[in-house]
Design a protein around this nucleic acid. Structure first.
Length: 589
RNA sequence: UGGGGGAUCGUCUAGCGGUAGGACGCCGGCCUUUGGAGCCGGCUACCUAGGUUCGAUUCCUAGUCCCCCAGCCA
């Protein structure tokens, strides 16, 4: 049954989120200093009024929520500029860390997030030949030289933060010698580490990046795309600005740590006679509480098998979030909301959860599932009767219709919904008390059966009030609580994974970075077996998202099967009672 | 004790010389067949000290604190 009533409350709710409801293209973003700057450049006719941005990941890991911020910014700015475009470029200049698995995953993730590079897919490795030619230009202008110092010697010559560096004895090599040596580097005549190509700038610069930075190094390694064609590889500081220039990037957005590379970026573009001069603008990277975001730490978790893989739902990777049930819309809305600025910031995980709930609330079908079952027998309900009760699929979306849920004499409810000795403000089931069963009847608890050994409550005997059937007009009796349930003989068994923060709230302070895994939450994964879910779930498919009423949002795992249902909890519902209960523990009754 | 950046509610963020606003969170209330959702109300914020100005979060000066940089990583 599908109704099309215009529900005033949901219609009202919709006016607030109009932009998000019509997002065949992702929502246009809120204002920030970079958007303002790009808009100003465009109206001033800078770069010919064009806007070309780029998202330039190195394919040495999986994308995470921090990358999402950059993706949303770069693609967002391009998409809202007439004729604007955002390139996807793999910054693959270091053959030892990169591999095609990551390239594939990154493309998938960008698409999943809802962005389209419109055919503008590039690799820095596409430009190796051109970059080589730019290097020749530099050498010919006397702006670059081959240095034959060892790595240690180079470090030693570089000076320190407070002391200037010293010129390498090879700094004065002739252009002819440099050309010859550089050609032989390329030809493979030299071993790794024996020579590098360096920019000739200023060894006494207060900016260490300008103390003759390394432009090329020798690496006899197989590159996942160019194989063994090359044994010299350009460094980031050389490849990045020139790749931007070659692609006609107008605004090259990157994170704060590259701020003092900007003079070098500009130097490279200018001295190499690049066809175009992009503008680098820096912004603060995203930090989130109670999780890890650095590639190094994520890789460590995965390779040490501290988590199940890159798509472990506890991880802030895009694949982890997807498997957990987070939608791309929620991620985008979050990224737009947190803003873009230059100050270091740590965003609370609760803010992210808010955007996940907000999105899932509108779209998730409701369903009943009992995570920790407690048997309930309705003593006055006939043994051979099964009623099919009408249940609303989504009160936020009447067009989602209704479904039938079987009801019978023996049911299961949540253990938490019964307390033999109820504390103050607990208004669920207790001896002698009444609650409504969602979509069903009001029931009254007559007695609790206990395990003689442990004293644990094993089953409840209740009576139901036939006059109070849901939807019947005659009985308007109110009770304080409504609880969810499943019919014992109809329910399907499921395994459910609950996720808790990856990091402990207060990380042990002792040693800083070395053993950061000490602050990992050993209880980050909670596995519940023998959960009982309503039978309609048997026919749903992996990836489907639901709200388990009164509990949270759950997503059917890819490894779920009709015989072995498996769900991941995306995020819990806000739980007012949990707060009250916690407050009571601090100051009882 | 070099250079580059940054400081606004608990947390993000707006402000561009004229009443410091929004979101999350938290607290209280309303409503409710989800203690959900929704609604209403509230919450000790401009780093400090001077200066300019009728008026400064905004401009100037001097401090303080925080972040980044000494990879042949990006």
């Amino acid at each position: 049954m599908v109704e099309h009533h215009l529900d005033p409350s949901s219609a009202h709710g919709r006016t607030n989120t109009l932009a998000q409801d019509f997002m065949s293209t992702p929502e246009s973003g809120s204002s920030n200093f970079i958007r303002d700057l790009v808009a100003a450049d465009r109206s001033a006719g800078k770069h010919g009024g064009r806007v070309v941005t780029r998202f330039p990941p190195e394919p040495n890991g999986y994308l995470h929520i921090g990358h999402a911020k950059s993706i949303v910014l770069n693609f967002g700015i391009a998409n809202e500029s007439p004729g604007g475009v955002c390139h996807l470029r793999f910054d693959d200049t270091n053959p030892t860390t990169e591999n095609p698995e990551y390239v594939q995953a990154i493309q998938e993730d960008v698409r999943w997030l809802g962005f389209d590079w419109r055919g503008k897919l590039f690799h820095a490795s596409d430009y190796f030949e051109r970059l080589y030619a730019f290097a020749i230009v530099l050498i010919e202008k006397g702006k670059a030289y081959v240095d034959s110092l060892t790595a240690d010697q180079i470090r030693e010559h570089r000076g320190t933060l407070t002391e200037p560096g010293r010129n390498s004895p090879y700094r004065t090599r002739s252009v002819e010698d440099n050309l010859d040596l550089f050609a032989r580097m390329r030809a493979g005549e030299f071993a790794d580490g024996t020579h590098v190509l360096r920019a000739k700038i200023d060894m006494s610069s207060p900016n260490i990046n300008l103390r003759d930075p390394i432009l090329y190094r020798i690496r006899h390694a197989e590159h996942y795309r160019t194989g063994t064609t090359w044994c010299i590889y350009p460094s980031y500081d050389f490849a990045h600005p020139l790749s931007d220039a070659v692609e006609g990037i107008t605004h090259s957005l990157c994170t704060l740590e590259f701020e003092d590379h900007r003079p070098l970026y500009d130097w490279v573009v200018a001295e190499a006679d690049a066809p175009h001069r992009p503008q680098q603008i820096e912004f603060a990277r995203l930090n989130l509480t109670s999780t890890v975001m650095s590639k190094r730490k994520l890789l460590e978790l995965v390779s040490k098998k501290l988590v199940a893989g890159w798509d472990d739902p506890r991880l802030p990777t895009l694949q982890g979030l997807r498997r957990r049930g987070v939608t791309p819309e929620a991620i985008r809305a979050f990224c737009e909301h947190i803003g873009v600025a230059k100050r270091d910031a740590i965003v609370e995980m609760q803010l992210f959860e808010h955007f996940i709930r907000e999105d899932l609330n509108k779209r998730s079908p409701r369903v009943m599932a009992v995570l920790r079952p407690l048997k309930v027998i309705l003593d006055n309900y006939p043994e051979d009767v099964v009623e099919e009760l009408d249940a609303v699929n989504n009160p936020e979306d009447i067009s989602a219709g209704t479904r039938k849920v079987p009801f019978s004499r023996t049911l299961y409810i949540e253990q938490d919904d019964f307390k033999e000795d109820p504390p103050k403000q607990f208004y669920r089931l207790a001896p002698g008390r009444e609650v409504r069963l969602r979509y069903g009847y009001i029931i009254k608890c007559m007695s609790a059966t206990k395990d003689p050994q442990t004293g644990a409550v094993t089953e409840l005997h209740c009576t139901y009030d036939p006059e109070t059937k849901s939807g019947s007009a005659q009985e308007q009796r109110k009770v304080k609580a409504t609880i969810h349930w499943v019919s014992a003989s109809h329910a399907a068994t499921a395994t459910i994974r609950l996720y808790h923060p990856l990091l402990l709230p207060a990380p042990p302070q002792h040693s800083a970075e070395a053993d950061w895994t000490g602050s990992l939450n050993p209880q980050s994964l909670e596995l519940l077996t023998d959960c009982l879910v309503e039978p309609s779930l048997r026919s749903s498919s992996p990836g489907s998202r639901f709200q388990f009423e009164r509990q949270g949002y759950f997503c059917m795992d890819p490894e779920s099967s009709p015989e072995a249902l498996l769900f991941n909890r995306t995020v819990s519902l806000k739980d007012t009672w949990a707060k009250v209960e916690k407050a009571q523990q601090v100051r009882p009754r």
